[in-house]
């Protein structure tokens, strides 16, 4: 503590003491009043790619409760995987009568929303990018480093195979368009470079579709029944890959590694051996990061665009051995809580 603040404190205390008889209820903590003044009634809007998947539901609940908790207004927009609809939602928010104080945007690609972010900041709105980055550095990015994610997946797969295995790995990619898909691939490639004895035997696309994932995984396993691990880029499509492994009668022999939002289904799949490892995005922690950042930005006196920061969520590859009660969060509970709130 510096001398200056000490002095200030003492002064404040003296001032409080002096006014104590008049304002008996004052505690002397300027915080609540300041928070009230800077945060109450501030509107925060979440625009995910779509609301209909676990991560978005998690953010909606965990960040939403924080925002409502500090007296802000919490809203969401649901573009349902449509970039143009998302862009329009952001545009409308920028020009709306009661402007939001901050936007939390889950961007679909590197460029589409960049101009809009600039406009939002010019209009005095903080922009926090969540989970997917764009090439515009807004006030903050909070989310996964997808390359790290890929590295973790690859490491988990290498570990799962072990030294005595065939050392052949199959890959079920997303669509080779999305940066999350491309970055994951880069991460995996990086790790495999360090393990030259491991071989990538096939890398078909699921196109983010579970049935396609199943079909391509079936063919992959058919052609290479000796693979020791398959990496799927998304737990959603991994359900199809898992079905293919099951169909091929290779359950337990072929280890499935994927990424996920850490929802209960992931833990269940780990529990029953469907997934060998899941690189989980810690939604609760991520939401807490975002909430803290929101509170900071709105109180900081900073203007949108003045500061930049990247906050990467800590990710870990979780296996069955790591499972503890509370490792996963429950979508059901979250939805029940939201439904109760709606009433």
């Amino acid at each position: 503590m510096t001398i200056k603040t000490k002095l200030a404190r003492t002064l404040a205390a003296a001032l409080c003491l002096a006014t104590l008889p008049a304002f008996a209820q004052e505690t002397g903590d300027p915080g609540p009043a300041y928070v009230q003044q800077s945060l109450a009634g501030k509107k925060v809007v979440l625009i995910p790619l779509a609301l209909g998947f676990d991560l978005a539901q998690g953010w909606n609940h965990y960040i939403g409760s924080e925002v409502r908790g500090f007296g802000g207004v919490w809203e969401t927009r649901d573009p349902n995987w449509d970039t143009a609809a998302g862009a329009q939602a952001i545009t409308d928010l920028i020009s709306s009568a009661d402007k939001p104080a901050a936007l939390l945007v889950h961007t679909p690609d590197l460029t589409s929303y960049s101009k809009l972010f600039k406009r939002a900041q010019d209009a005095g709105i903080f922009v926090i990018q969540v989970d997917n980055r764009s090439n515009f550095a807004s006030d903050a990015f909070v989310g996964s480093n997808w390359e790290t994610l890929g590295e973790l997946e690859a490491k988990a797969a290498v570990a799962a195979c072990g030294d005595g295995s065939s050392k052949k790995i199959g890959l079920i990619q997303g669509d080779q368009v999305n940066s999350s898909s491309l970055d994951q691939y880069a991460g995996i490639a990086k790790v495999l470079k360090d393990h030259p004895d491991f071989e990538l035997v096939g890398a078909p696309d699921s196109n983010w579709d579970v049935t396609t994932a199943r079909n391509v995984a079936t063919t992959l396993l058919q052609q290479h029944p000796e693979v020791c691990a398959v990496i799927d880029f998304w737990d959603n499509t991994a359900a199809g890959t898992a079905a293919a492994i099951r169909d091929a009668g290779l359950t337990g022999k072929v280890k499935l590694v994927t990424t996920g939002g850490g929802e209960e289904l992931d833990c269940k799949a780990l529990e029953d051996g469907t997934f060998h490892a899941v690189v989980m995005t810690d939604v609760k922690g991520q939401s807490r990061d975002i909430s803290a950042l929101l509170k900071f930005l709105l109180q900081s006196g900073l203007k949108p665009g003045q500061a930049k920061s990247w906050i990467y969520t800590l990710e870990t590859a979780t296996t069955k051995a790591d499972l503890k009660p509370g490792t996963c969060w429950s979508l059901k509970d979250v939805q029940a809580a939201e439904a109760a709130l709606a009433k």
Partner: peptide, 15 residues
């Protein structure tokens, strides 16, 4: 559209 968003993403124009 390109001028408005100055980018092209995977979902552009679908639907």
């Amino acid at each position: 559209f390109a001028a408005r968003l100055s980018g092209a993403g995977p979902g552009t124009g679908s639907g």
